[in-house]
Write a protein that binds this DNA or RNA. Structure first.
Lengths: 335, 335
DNA sequence: TTGAAAGCGCTAACAG
DNA sequence: CTGTTAGCGCTTTCAA
């Protein structure tokens, strides 16, 4: 009934369990004769080693715990993909859990992952709470935080240079002839949002253009839509020609608002986003935006974790990846 | 250095490891005194039981293996969400792997999951190959297949009644005054696509309307776009007023084609989809479509698996969930 | 109510 | 090259 064990294989092959173990792992020389018998027995019994037992004795679970806020958020999915693909290259498997932003649940999940003996953790929670970060810091398993909005510099992470990226986009807009640019910033105290804002401001200042911002309470299309009217008022009132959203979700929501209210993009207003989430290239008009390498965030993160596991060498706390401007259809050249 | 074990707790508490185990699991009466000492020790050492060891002896991993074609496909994500949320309710964790449609990899993953002692498997591969299904059938771990395009009736699954749903949508379109309706079908031999087509045809026949179909080699917006021109020719040539796509992805691609080629939806052509994937309600104009309960597919699937695990009672091979028509903006009332 | 001991399936000295 | 043995960290008889 229950699956065969190494013992069954040994018995059938007429050797000891050590020999079986040795051929399975190629860990020590085994005579061709014995090897053949073992291999035969394995095939005959359709034997599959119990990884749990192996993990127990090896003290290696080959598991990476991934905690996401919500797997349905498309950019998180991209990250998970990166994690999974390179994880598999190194024979690591993914234990996945969603926290839905519930901090107590998140803490429970982390503890739970410890009990499952994960060898590393990547936390994708958008806005990890200090308590949680603290938990992670005060233990020995390597971890990386992949937070799109908040990130604590003391923590291991992989990001782009948000400020530089925002500067580039602002320059891009200016290059297209825009001087009155509105910056729409996510959340109130999102650290990363602040960075983007800084970049925008620096460039505007350098050009002696008047900078104008509005902060929106959220990051999704819902909020972009909700604030549409308010944003539009500013646009009209101040003669804004381009709106630079700190998040694609917000931009898409605003695009929806425009569609529903008969404002033409980019004729009536140019809009730029930040992130290049999946929908941005699918939507019409296609969103011009800053591309963040989500897949690579994940890929690099596991790579760092695995390196730490293998070599136990301290990893640099932050890795900065390149970003780029993706020009599509929502920004008009008004030169 | 390494984390404390049950032995350490026992030593510190001055009791045997059995006693520690008993208080952890409430498995047998323990004197209040001993319990207190154990609890103290646990707290003092910040002891976390090793689930691997426990699983080994209990022969229960509390793991459900989930194999998806690609986690970045949005409806799959929804399913995974359902799996995860109800899984957690029963204390099951998700071991996630993507197959990217590679059948050899898929088989490897399945075997691998067996070695990890998963207690159940849910396979979300869009078009599981017979070989793979065969593997699943010839072993004892419960499994469920969640395939959107192909599904083998002999296999455990949870779906909607595709034919009925397509009938409803066709009736809906007719109710809006459309008589010349084009059905755009995914793939060549997708069984589920056939079902939808049947539903459409039955209704058209019943009304004595001429049915017209085209089969497209794919299911995503890419193909919907690619076939846009061909579809449009048919529309013009045959005076079609509404196009019913067997998949939302296809419909979105076609909507993009229309946008890029200055065809107005729904003024020039009405379009309906099937699935209600995430983008369908975000896109403008919003897509009128058939809603499939993706989250519930996943939720019901695990529930069935867990029931099988717990009660070892045979589960009905297919569960049919309700679907519904979501009326939005892409279908015009031409009555 | 408790502890000793066996064992889950496997790996890794150790001796031969 | 091979078998014996001692665990990995935990649960669970079995006696006491």
């Amino acid at each position: 009934m229950s699956s065969p064990t190494i013992k069954d294989v040994a018995r059938l092959a007429g050797v000891s369990i050590s020999t079986v173990s040795r051929v399975m792992n190629d860990s020590k020389p085994v005579s061709p004769e014995a090897r053949r018998k073992v291999l035969d027995a394995i095939k005959k019994l359709d034997f599959k080693p119990n990884e749990l037992a192996r993990s127990l004795v090896m003290r290696r679970s080959n598991l990476i715990g991934v905690i996401v806020k919500d797997i349905a958020i498309s950019y998180m999915t991209e990250m998970v993909r990166g994690i999974e693909e390179v994880g598999r290259m190194y024979n690591y498997d993914i234990l996945l859990s969603s926290s839905y932003g519930d901090i107590e649940l998140e803490k429970k999940i982390i503890n739970f992952m410890f009990t499952k003996q994960v060898e590393g953790i990547v936390l994708i929670s958008e806005d990890a709470k200090p308590e949680v970060v603290y938990m992670l810091q005060n233990q020995t398993i390597p971890y990386i935080q992949l937070d799109k909005f908040y990130n604590f510099n003391e923590t291991y992470s992989v990001t782009i240079n948000y400020k530089e990226a925002a500067k580039e986009m602002t320059e891009f807009l200016i290059g297209k002839g825009h001087e009155k640019i509105l910056f729409v910033k996510e959340y109130k105290n999102a650290i990363i949002g602040q960075e983007k804002l800084k970049g925008y401001k620096e460039v505007m200042d350098a050009h002696n253009y008047f900078s104008r911002e509005i902060t929106v309470d959220g990051v999704t299309d819902k909020e972009g839509y909700k604030y549409g009217e308010e944003i539009w008022k500013i646009i009209e009132h101040e003669g804004i020609t381009a709106a630079f959203f700190s998040e694609d979700g917000l931009a898409i929501g605003f695009l929806n608002y425009c569609y529903d209210n008969n404002k033409k993009v980019p004729d009536d207003i140019s809009v730029a986003g930040f992130g290049d989430i999946k929908i941005s290239s699918l939507y019409r008009p296609r969103l011009t935006t800053v591309r963040e390498p989500y897949y690579d965030y994940g890929a690099v993160a596991v790579r760092k974790i695995i390196k730490k596991i293998k070599d136990n060498v301290e990893i640099d706390s932050a890795t900065i990846l390149p970003s780029s401007i993706i020009e599509r259809e929502t920004v008009k050249d008004i030169n």
